[in-house]
Design a protein around this nucleic acid. Sequence first.
DNA 1: AGGACGATTAACT
DNA 2: GTTAATCGTCCTC
Length: 198
Amino acid sequence: MPINRDRLVGSALKLAPRLLGAVLTSEVGGLPVSARITEVEAYEGEDDPASHAFRGRTPRTAVMFGPPGHLYCYFTYGMHWCANIVCGTDGTAAAVLLRGGEIVAGLDTARDRRATARNDSELGKGPARLAAALGLGALTNGVDLCSPLSPVRLEHLPSRRPRGVAAGPRIGITRAVELPWRFWFEGDPTVSRPARSG
DNA sequence: AGGACGATTAACT
DNA sequence: GTTAATCGTCCTC
């Protein structure tokens, strides 16, 4: 059973660390794959200069402005897809980028989709890698994560903020670069990068 | 209509 | 550590 939608409503900054340890299950293409989320980033919307929603609603960002509990998938660098969980109330843009995950079911399918991975820790290590392992992309943009009928569902959201969580600046952005809005399980091999040294 | 740039990754030296 | 790959989106003429 997917989790209740009410548990995904609020600011991305508050939700992001609580998503660590949650399990996302995909059945795209009839092939089930599940990932335990190990790394995330918060994007707050129109007040966050680093957010896709900063310049307002566009066709691309429409899902971010829609109801919470849905998947926002976007295409970047001409070749990669990444996935977010929308958490703002309808009309408010806020979302949590999924940056890392441990594949806990459907390993054979994930290995097929991520043929360049040298070990299982790399299957979902990084936002585009995780999306690829789960089969997320154009066809899953906007899907409801809280419906039992959905091809992608969020399960097992921990009821309390987990232990062993580190925080630091978000990766790959050029604005609001210092805000410590990335959260990850310290020492987990499926996290894309360790904390910035220095 | 044109162009710069990206919430990245893999393959190099 | 550096750089090519590759194209949709959005800003600026």
